[in-house]
Amino acid sequence: MNANLKNCPQCGRLFSPGSRNICNRCLEKEEEEYMTVRRYVRDHPGASIFEASEETGVEEEKIMQFIRDGRLVTRGFKGVLQCEGCGKPINNGRFCDDCINERNNAIYGAARQPKPQPEPDRKPPSVGKRSERMHVRD
Rank of each mutant, 00 (worst) to 15 (best):
E33T: 03
V37K: 08
C23S: 09
G79L: 04
S48P: 07
G93F: 01
E102S: 01
C86F: 05
C11S: 13
N4D: 15
F15H: 06
G46C: 10
G18C: 08
R42H: 11
K6Y: 00
R130D: 05
Y40Q: 07
E55W: 02
L27T: 07
F95M: 10
V58P: 06
R94C: 03
G70F: 06
N101H: 11
R25M: 04
N105H: 10
E119C: 04
D43T: 09
F95A: 02
P116S: 04
D97P: 00
E60M: 09
L5D: 13
P45E: 03
E59K: 14
P9C: 06
F77N: 12
R130F: 06
E33D: 12
E54L: 14
L14W: 08
I63A: 05
E55T: 03
M134G: 14
P89W: 00
F50E: 12
T74W: 00
A106I: 04
S131R: 11
G70D: 05
E33H: 11
R13V: 08
V41H: 04
M134K: 15
G109L: 04
G46H: 04
N101Q: 13
A106T: 03
R94Y: 11
D43K: 12
Q65N: 11
C26H: 08
P116K: 05
P116A: 02
F50P: 00
S16T: 14
L27E: 13
F50M: 13
S131C: 07
C11I: 09
D121E: 14
G76D: 02
N2H: 05
G128R: 09
R68F: 02
I100Y: 01
K88W: 02
V58G: 03
E32C: 04
K62P: 02
R20S: 13
N101W: 01
I49E: 07
R13E: 09
V73N: 05
C96K: 00
P17V: 07
V58F: 03
M134D: 12
S19C: 07
Y34I: 06
S126P: 10
G85L: 03
F66W: 01
Y108G: 03
E28H: 10
N2E: 12
E119H: 06
G12R: 02
Y108W: 12
N21C: 02
R13G: 04
K123I: 06
Q117A: 12
N7Y: 01
K29G: 06
N101P: 02
E61I: 10
N2Q: 10
G70K: 13
E61S: 14
R103F: 02
R20D: 12
T56G: 07
H44C: 09
Y40W: 13
C11P: 15
S126C: 05
Q65I: 00
K29P: 03
E33C: 14
M64D: 02
C99H: 02
G79I: 07
Q65C: 00
G57Q: 04
K62E: 11
K62S: 12
E102Y: 01
